[in-house]
């Protein structure tokens, strides 16, 4: 469903969600959404997608093997640097 006149607000919807717009513009967008169901639904679905990405993006800590390999590699680097240092 396409709505004429909504495009301008749509271009600002990310900043609106982040609270990065001036207060007057936020009021105008809110007033528009009060009267425009598709825009309201659109913003709601965008918020849901962002929340889903955030929730799924919370990866656990690095796997133990990757951690152990990093520590081994750092130990090797330290040893190599010590060898190179002039006495």
């Amino acid at each position: 469903m396409k709505h004429r006149g909504c495009g301008k607000d749509l271009a600002k919807v990310s900043e609106f969600i982040d609270g990065g717009l001036p207060a007057a513009m936020c009021r105008r967008i809110r007033a528009h959404m009060d009267d425009c169901r598709p825009c309201r639904d659109f913003v709601a679905s965008l918020r849901r997608a962002m929340a889903l990405h955030r929730a799924q993006g919370r990866a656990p800590s690095p796997p133990p093997l990757a951690k152990a390999e990093l520590r081994d590699a750092l130990r090797s680097c330290t040893a190599a640097l010590k060898k190179r240092k002039p006495r």
Binding site: S45, A51, Q56
Partner: peptide, 29 residues
């Protein structure tokens, strides 16, 4: 950049998942 209905996207509940819910979460991931 059009304006679809926004329906159909549901977030998983924050409870101990059933096998179906676990599979659903994996699918979402």
């Amino acid at each position: 950049l059009d304006l679809p209905s926004g329906e159909g996207l549901r977030l998983p509940a924050d409870s101990i998942p059933t096998p179906e819910q676990a599979a659903g979460k994996r699918e979402l991931a």
